[in-house]
């Protein structure tokens, strides 16, 4: 227990931990503030303005159609209408029906908590997962590269206990940042919705769904924190984790994505990790093959689809954590420390 408390103290004392956490929280705050200032509450004024703008737009369309028809007829009578600029029959140039131009198009952006909040949990999890990854990698990587780990093992010569205690302290620290941040995130967007949108139709089922999405976000943060920690421990340096993730993302993801696209592989996104992270957060990602055509009852072409579910993502995340952390533990147990 003393080692766990000490490692928590060590984590909190590290400037990198403090600065990265602060940076992550500032980015999250910036997102909330940005959403606040780019949204408006929809009231009678906004609706009336939108109606006026829709009407104005319709009148512009009418004027334009009139002018275009006149030009068409003029060109026809002058015998210069064969350059493809005008249709054969100038009377087909008509404005759209009034009801086709909807006032909703001209409404300002508004934040509907029920419809939009779940999407905001994706950047929330992504930002904190990134913070967790680099803090986790640095926490153990710096210990290895500065000799701190060797010093610690001279005091506590139980290698696996030391490594797992460090990981436990790290995850506790990340949770200590993530959970209050999640509460503030909910509260912040509730405030945004209250002042710049709508909080209507919030049932207990919706709250439950948000809570579960938030929980999956927290799990994603913890998983990536663990992966960063384990990679840096394997390579005995922070750069190992950071370099590893850059290599995986650039070569393994962008490169693979381009290659699969060039090879016209069906559902190429199914081979890319971010798809699984997205599926984990949104419960399901449906991939479409636009080269295929399935005629529906109305004769329209519909592409083949392939669903990636959060359960499949959970298997991938679990296997990833087990393999990478297992390798770090195995290396910790086996290797000579110099």
């Amino acid at each position: 227990m003393s080692l766990y408390r000490t490692e928590l103290r060590r984590l909190a004392k590290r400037r990198f931990t403090r600065y990265m956490s602060l940076l992550g929280l500032l980015v999250l705050a910036a997102v909330v503030i940005g959403v606040f200032f780019t949204n408006e509450k929809i009231g009678a004024d906004q609706l009336a303005r939108a109606e006026r703008q829709a009407e104005q737009n319709y009148q512009e369309q009418v004027t334009w159609a009139k002018e275009a028809r006149a030009s068409c007829e003029q060109a026809k009578s002058a015998g210069t209408a064969n350059d493809g600029r005008y249709p054969e029959d100038c009377s087909v140039i008509t404005p759209p029906p009034r009801d086709q131009i909807q006032a909703e198009w001209f409404l300002p952006s508004t934040f509907n908590f029920r419809e939009t909040f779940a999407e905001t949990l994706i950047p929330f999890a992504a930002i904190l997962a990134l913070v967790g990854f680099v803090v986790g990698a640095s926490f153990i990587g710096a210990e290895w590269s500065t000799g701190g780990m060797m010093n610690l093992l001279l005091w506590r010569p139980k290698r696996l206990t030391v490594l797992l205690t460090k990981l436990a302290a790290l995850l506790t620290g990340i949770l200590a940042v993530t959970l209050p941040a999640a509460v503030l995130w909910f509260a912040g967007f509730w405030a945004v919705a209250s002042f710049r949108g709508s909080t209507e139709k919030m049932t207990s089922g919706v709250w439950q769904s948000f809570a579960l999405t938030g929980l999956r976000g927290v799990v994603l943060v913890l998983v990536l924190t663990t992966v960063g920690f384990a990679l840096a421990s394997l390579g005995r340096h922070t750069a190992m984790a950071l370099g590893g993730v850059v290599a995986v993302m650039v070569v393994g993801q962008f490169g693979l994505g381009i290659l699969l696209s060039m090879a016209s592989v069906r559902f190429a996104e199914a081979w890319l990790l971010p798809t699984y992270a997205l599926a984990w957060m949104t419960k399901k990602v449906t991939l479409q093959d636009w080269n295929s055509c399935n005629a529906n009852y109305s004769g329209e072409c519909e592409p083949n689809t392939f669903d990636i579910t959060w359960q499949q993502s959970s298997v991938l995340l679990s296997v990833g954590v087990v393999v990478i952390l297992g390798a770090a533990l195995w290396a910790m147990r086996r290797r000579d420390i110099s």
């Binding site: 003393s2 080692l3 408390r5 000490t6 490692e7 103290r9 060590r10 004392k13 010093n151 610690l152 005091w155 506590r156």
Partner: peptide, 12 residues
């Protein structure tokens, strides 16, 4: 002092 304090904590 921090360095020694952390070691002291780890070693009780």
């Amino acid at each position: 002092r921090d360095t020694l304090s952390l070691l002291a904590g780890a070693g009780e």
